[in-house]
Computed example of a mutant assay.
Amino acid sequence: MKARITTTLTGLGLALGIAGAAAAAETTMRIAHVNPPEIMASNAGALSAVFKQLVETASNGEIEVTIYPAGQLGKDAEAIAQVRQGIIESSISTAGGVAEHYPRIGVFDIPFAFPNIGVANEVISLESEFGQMLAEDINEETGLKVLGLLDSGGFFQFTNSQRPITSPEDMDGLRIRTMTLPTHEALINSMGSRATPLAWAEVYTALQTGVADGQMNPIQQTAFAKFDEVQDYLTISNHLITPYVWFVNQDFYDGLPEEHQRIIDWASKVAVDAGRAMSRIIEASDQGLPKLADSMEVNTITPEQREAFAASAQPAVRQVIEETYGEEGVALLEAMLSSIEEAHAAQR
C-alpha cells in the first residue's frame, strides 16, 4: 500500500524559500529533522553535524550540507513527503512519521523483544541482514533510499505519579499516555492499564492535572520534557525501542558522481555511530538518568518480571500487527525476531 503524501503549506513554503541556496555549491544536500539543533542535545543533532563536517571536508566544499532542525520544515511525516517529492534531499525521521509513509515500521512495537541496547545496535543497522531487508522493503514501498538506521534515543521506560511499577499487576488501573498508535494502545491495555492517546504538546499538562497518571518514552525525551516535575516514579522497563530512519531522495543520490556517492556512504556510517553514541552519552549525563534520579524514585524490573510483562503484552500487540500489516508485516516481524535472537546468542 502506497503511503499518502501530505505536505503542509508552511513546510512547503519554507522548503521552496530555501531552494535558491542550492545554487551556492556544486551540490547541496538539505537534511531536516525535528530534534534540537545542538550537537550535544540529541542524536539527530550529533549525527547531522558530524555528517556535514565530514562530507564538506572530504568533498573540498563541492557538497554543501544544510541542516534544518527542530521541525523547521514541518513534522516528520511532512519532511519525508518533501524528500519523496524532491523538494529537499534528506530527512532523519522517527517511526511515528515513517509510519505514515511505510506502515510496516510498526513491527518494532512488539514489546520486550530486544534484550539490551547491544542487540538493538546490531539489529537496527544497515550492517545487519534484517536492516538491509528493511531498507529494501522501504525503498520498494516509498522509492526512498535508506541512508542509515539507529535507535530514536534509547529504550522506552515507564513513568507515573502513583506508585513504583515492579510487576504487571502494578500497571492495573493506571492511565498511561500513548501516541495514537494501535500497537501502543494494545500494549498498555493488555497490562490492565488504560491507554490515553494524546498529542505530544498535551502530555505535560495531562500529567500535571491528572488526566494521565503516566507516560512512556526514552530517558532523554523524558528529561528534556521535564516530566520529572510532574511524575514521581521511573521504571527502567526497556519495553520498546523504535528506529530513526535516515532517508535520502533516490534520484538525488543516483545523480551524484560516484566519488560523491562514496563520500556520502562512508560519512553516513560514521555519522550514525556518532548518533548512537550521543544517545548513550545523554542518558548517562546530567541531562539524562542522573537528572531524573535527583527528583524521582527509580527502579528496574527484574528478568523474571520482564518475562511476566512480555507474556502479558506480546500476544495482544502481535495480534494487532497481524491484523494491521498482514502477511508482509508478519514476515518482517519474524525476520526481526530472528535477527534479535541471533544477535543475542552471539553475546552469550
Rank of each mutant, 00 (worst) to 15 (best):
K2H: 13
I5M: 08
T6M: 15
L9F: 03
T10N: 04
T10L: 14
T10I: 14
G11Q: 05
L12A: 15
L12Q: 12
G13A: 11
L14V: 13
A19V: 00
A19M: 06
G20A: 11
G20I: 01
A21N: 08
A24I: 07
E26Q: 12
T28C: 02
R30H: 05
H33D: 03
N35R: 07
P36G: 06
N43T: 15
N43D: 06
A46H: 13
V50C: 11
Q53K: 14
V55I: 02
T57N: 13
G61W: 05
G61A: 04
I63E: 10
E64H: 14
A70N: 15
G74M: 04
A77L: 03
A77Y: 07
I80L: 09
Q82E: 09
R84E: 15
R84V: 06
Q85L: 15
Q85R: 14
G86K: 01
I87C: 00
E89Q: 15
S91N: 13
S93L: 02
G97W: 07
E100G: 14
P103N: 05
I105R: 01
G106A: 14
F108L: 11
D109C: 12
P111F: 15
F114H: 01
F114N: 01
G118E: 13
E122Y: 05
S125C: 05
E127Q: 10
E127H: 14
E127R: 14
F130C: 07
A135N: 08
T142C: 11
V146Q: 04
S152I: 04
Q157T: 11
F158R: 05
N160C: 10
Q162T: 11
R163E: 09
P164V: 12
P164E: 14
I165Q: 05
P168Q: 10
E169W: 00
M171H: 03
D172T: 09
G173E: 11
T180W: 15
T183K: 10
L187W: 10
L187H: 06
S193I: 01
A195F: 11
T196A: 13
P197R: 02
A201P: 01
V203D: 00
L207Q: 08
A212Q: 01
D213E: 01
Q215Y: 14
Q220M: 08
A223R: 05
F224L: 03
A225S: 12
E229M: 10
Y233I: 04
S237E: 02
S237C: 04
N238K: 13
P243H: 07
P243G: 10
F252P: 06
D254Y: 02
R262P: 00
V272D: 01
A274D: 06
G275H: 02
R276G: 05
S285R: 06
P290Y: 06
D294L: 12
I301V: 12
T302M: 06
E307Q: 11
A308D: 07
A310D: 02
V317A: 06
G326L: 09
G329Y: 07
L337Q: 12
L337V: 03
E341N: 09
E342W: 00
A346F: 08
Q347H: 11
R348C: 05
